[in-house]
Amino acid sequence: MIRRESAIVTDPVTLSEPQPTRLVRIEAFALDPAFAEAFEGAVGAPLPAVGRVTDAPAGPVIWAEPRAVLASGDAAALSAALSGVAAVSDVSGAWRRIDLTGPGWRERLMIDGLFDAESPGFAPGCVAATLLRHAPVMLCPTGRDGVLICVAPSFAADLRAALAR
């Protein structure tokens, strides 16, 4: 068999699955200063810009939709704090996390993917919602040479097995 000098260097990656944490979905009734102010007061961090992730005391805040973000915290408390400006729902069980770390993390996201994870602009602080191996995911590069993949639990086992191959 001829062994070509392969154009692909398959760098190693490791996978780990942290435990689910308290996660809420906050949908603003309107994106106005009243909401932005109430949000910052309740969550302890400003609203992230489109496609961005910011840090808050209870955990990262992830921009998800034009008027919805995912944040960490207690749903009842946040709901009360944002009453009148936003709807808050507990979605702790709706996302599993897969941490993909190692030098090959960008390459791994290109396999059966649609998104340009190899672009240097895709860096910590960004979030990209896309499809990966048929599963809807959110991708957040971390500063540790890796990426946090958020995926619905029903797809998680398949996605984890596919990423590990």
Partner: peptide, 15 residues
């Protein structure tokens, strides 16, 4: 779009 409401898909949140 002006309704004061949020609709969260919690299909996967709840077993």
């Amino acid at each position: 779009p002006d309704l004061r409401v949020g609709a969260a898909n919690v299909q996967e949140h709840h077993a």
